[in-house]
Amino acid sequence: REPLSASMLASALPHVQKQMIGDRLYPLIYALHSELAGKITGMLLEIDNSELLHMLESPESLNAKVEEALIMLQAHQA
């Protein structure tokens, strides 16, 4: 699939934009943390779309945010 672009997102409704990003983000997160992928993706979708698009292109940025989300999730569940 071609990379998700800001112009592709711009033509969609806000909740559909998150859906489009989530569909791209989920497999990447699933590869890192299969059991928590749904929750981590849900958390990360609260981030601005422009930053989410950057994370889709940058594994380092994505990994850093996934680790942050994991820490928050573990703190929440404790």
Binding site: P14, H15, K18, D23, L25, Y26, G38
Partner: peptide, 22 residues
Amino acid sequence: GSSVNWPPEFHPGVPWKGLQSI
């Protein structure tokens, strides 16, 4: 607490409702 529903969970191919309040 009452926050057991956080965070909203994403499922591929299922319409995302995490931001329904917008």
